[in-house]
Design a binder for these strands. Sequence first.
DNA 1: GTCAAGAATCTTGTATGCAAGGTGAACCCG
DNA 2: CGGGTTCACCTTGCATACAAGATTCTTGAC
Lengths: 218, 218
Amino acid sequence: MENRRADTIARALEEMILSGEFAEGARLDEIRLAERFGVSRTPVREAFQRLALTGLIEQIPRRGVFIRQPGAVELMEMFEVMAELEALSGRLAAVRISDGALAQLAEANGNCRRAVEAGDANAYYDENERFHHIIYAEAGSAFLKGEVERLHRRLKPYRRLQLRLRGRLAQSMAEHEEIVAALSAGDAARAAKVLRAHVAIQGEKFHHLLASLKPAAE
Amino acid sequence: MENRRADTIARALEEMILSGEFAEGARLDEIRLAERFGVSRTPVREAFQRLALTGLIEQIPRRGVFIRQPGAVELMEMFEVMAELEALSGRLAAVRISDGALAQLAEANGNCRRAVEAGDANAYYDENERFHHIIYAEAGSAFLKGEVERLHRRLKPYRRLQLRLRGRLAQSMAEHEEIVAALSAGDAARAAKVLRAHVAIQGEKFHHLLASLKPAAE
DNA sequence: GTCAAGAATCTTGTATGCAAGGTGAACCCG
DNA sequence: CGGGTTCACCTTGCATACAAGATTCTTGAC
């Protein structure tokens, strides 16, 4: 579906940006990146086009492309939209999920619990990823899956960050239990409600985190 | 924010595709399009990149780009997601909308009513556009606005089509009245519910339309 | 006559060259 | 000495040339 090198570069760049390799507002030098990847400017420029569409970078004509980290307000907005899409996923998955997927969900959740007990935020994070992706898939809507996964990727680093908040792991775990219960019961409304809250609270937590870090921000 | 010519071409191509200028599955010839627009292949290829991201075309490596019209199932899925985003817009707008915007909404709705009485589907369509865009804007979330407008554009031709269904205009009009009432009352839950139904029913109507047109489809 | 293999051609993907626009610095004038 | 203007350099945007892969047509063999 994708160009060979341009695709590779786009993914690599996305990874680099999301992992915080570049400072906010920094300019991305086409030539330097091309040299770094061992290609010409063309595939780098194509990668820029894609990342600009997803909002990771901003292209200013005749000026260049710049790293664009969303501010606290925009992040809240993104989590807000994410919450709705997750809620929809849950509502659909509640009536469509297979027994096998339910078992996988329980397994991922078990791994999550063990990670919480071990205080291993990274392990929790990984299994949490798996947990949510199962729900996306079981919603049975290819389009929704694409949209929600796109936003999921975009919010990845921020979700990870807020997991560090004290007590958030345990709370998140409890929410997961509720989600599994609702899905197992086939209770669409409850699954939607719980998932919406589960995601929305992440946005709020993150907002708190930001506010405590830089009081004069935004 | 955009490249000069590549942006122009992307918009022109989007318009051409959405207006049904190309057949389903047709290949888009870079060279021919470049000649048609009077530019080289480069900006055309950049435009392709963008359209591929929005799902309008599909790029197959070393094969070319092809028109990709969503099938009935995918359209339903898209309307389903759209319904959630509209519902969120309504829920937020209900508590944030200004008096001025409410007046504009009432005005657009009045124009809609006159269009219905005149049986003018096109006029209704235009004012309907305005009506929804006001709600998107009044939700007060730049990110949500971007997402919902993107989907709105994508679904444009299909929404237009289903308006031709007998009785749909009057029904849609009644739904608009309810939406205005909910927003005026500041009733977030009701606004969300009505808007969700208003959009979801469009997907269903469209499905019926397709089913009646080609019984052996999908 | 049909099927398969190979070559020619066409198309995409990448590299590089060139032009236009913008930024920054230096120089001139007040 | 400060501010404004101009010039030079740098970066992006576009065009074109080149390479690699895919398709199709032709040719040959069975």
